[in-house]
Design a protein around this nucleic acid. Structure first.
Lengths: 129, 129
DNA sequence: CTAAGTGTATTATATCACTTAATACACTTG
DNA sequence: CAAGTGTATTAAGTGATATAATACACTTAG
């Protein structure tokens, strides 16, 4: 149940998921939503580890995955930076959204809901939005 | 990569998820979709364990969760049976579907998609359905 | 050049979820 | 009574996760 502000980023850490996944997801979200600007530097491995009171290796694991996502670039001796390419971020958003949708539809179909069921169901669920 | 037919139920087992979760999900789906009739007996713990070549304790874990879902009832000395109540099955479907939708929407919002974004996105994704 | 701060790599250890194994008990039915 | 149910217990093994300590290569500020 940690609750930390590091630079411009707010971290919510608990024990419901692996730590490195939570860090990864919160960076993904912050970058995707533009809460961190393109090209910005993100906290160093040691700095974030110290702030969140976790091991540097755990932060490293999240940062490596971020780079594989194409969301960050690392410069040895300088730090880790958000990609300057809006296209890369958009590609990531589009790709992950596709996976989310596929797996959501599969879940619903496993419960016996057809595609049209899903649409009407979701309309009811979010009338006000 | 197991692929087994046990009674009227077909099982797909791999190592991508815990075994007990896969068994659980496949029973949930079979019952929700009506592929197993209300009141039917499902395989005994030992029988399913033997057929899938896994430990009885692992099957037990899945069966206990099924009962907590309200989808099955156990009769000591007789076996495990699908609930005879259509209402219970419908309640389970409705409840789980709600959780799926909530978590799906949260995922999409974390990627920066608004509710209207999601709807148009999903329409494109499934034009033919 | 030096010191401090970067990312990176390695080795060891600890914990927890998951799974298996072996065994035993209580209950029901033929 | 025998065979088949669900259930409980104890022990052990494995892999993912996380920590700890340490070291190396690189970059920049001073």
């Amino acid at each position: 149940m940690e609750n930390q502000q590091v630079g411009s980023i707010h971290f919510q850490i608990d024990f419901s998921q692996p730590l490195y996944e939570q860090i990864l997801d919160q960076f993904r979200s912050s970058i995707a939503k533009g809460e961190i600007d393109l090209g910005d530097k993100i906290p160093s491995v040691r700095e974030l580890a110290q702030a969140l009171k976790i091991n540097p290796n755990t932060v490293m694991r999240a940062y490596q995955e971020l780079e594989r996502d194409g969301l960050t670039e690392k410069r040895r001796g300088q730090g880790t930076f958000v990609t300057a390419s809006k296209e890369q971020v958009d590609h990531f958003r589009h790709q992950l959204a596709g996976k989310y949708i596929e797996s959501f539809i599969l879940q619903m179909e496993n419960l016996g809901y057809s595609w049209s069921d899903i649409k009407t169901y979701m309309d009811k669920k979010h009338l006000g939005n």
